[in-house]
Design a protein around this nucleic acid. Sequence first.
DNA 1: GTCGAAACATAGCCTTGGCTATGTGATATA
DNA 2: TATATCACATAGCCAAGGCTATGTTTCGAC
Lengths: 142, 142
Amino acid sequence: MSTTPSSPATHAHRFARARAAQSVALLEDYAELIGDLHAEMGEARVADIAARMGVAQPTATKAIARLKREGLVTSRPYRGVFLTDAGAALADRVRRRHRTVVAFLVAVGVPADVAEMDAEGIEHHVSDRTLSAFEGFLLGAG
Amino acid sequence: MSTTPSSPATHAHRFARARAAQSVALLEDYAELIGDLHAEMGEARVADIAARMGVAQPTATKAIARLKREGLVTSRPYRGVFLTDAGAALADRVRRRHRTVVAFLVAVGVPADVAEMDAEGIEHHVSDRTLSAFEGFLLGAG
DNA sequence: GTCGAAACATAGCCTTGGCTATGTGATATA
DNA sequence: TATATCACATAGCCAAGGCTATGTTTCGAC
């Protein structure tokens, strides 16, 4: 059996979904990071965001511009970046999902550091139903 | 506890890894698909590749050009696309990993159709060690 | 208050991965 | 064999996400 011989349309749809997930992944990461920075340091400055994301400062500035367009953050120059209600909600969801994915990976035997690494990419493609399965597994195995 | 308070550098490194994984994800998908098409239909034509990927034909052509630059495929116009040895090896790895991820997700309670969906995005971020953990789990639970 | 350094913005460039529109080569069939 | 059709290539556009180089602001130290 060469996997499920799904139709071209179905196959294409899966790829489309993965592409869509990818396009919001960056927004999710920035939102979560901005929330973390506020929790840890009381503010989220562009320079810190860039450093944590591992990108140059103008790259972070550009990403923040996109977050603003999407209504996820506001910012005042030289005053930091602030999550909107929608942004904060997104950050919370992402943070919970991230923790669940890491905990789940560790629970099935992935070393903690590897779990953190892989989760960073995996989490954006974990649907609600899959997340539920992970949570169910953690309850059962906990 | 706000997860592990990892250093900015470590945090940045994880994102860099996720970005790198993303940059090869498309190559992996195309390689696997071209292998599948050869297995199923004896050849891989640009039009079929585009249809299965869910993109317009010029988009597929452009991607194939990149695959050629990377030494993964060769192609003769109007004669189809062919995997090189490196491309075939990649396709095999990707296909095995894909199957393992899907089987693993199903094993932990994810519905099959959802597993197929999510695996399409997840698989590209599953490291060798995590894949080993998945295989180990499948053996134990099988 | 001035001034230098740090923080941020802006401009301009690159690659990737989408798209549409349109040109061209191959093939089959009438 | 001529031509219509299909398959593919090419051109040109766009947004996203990187980068470097170079203005501006802000702010703290003096």
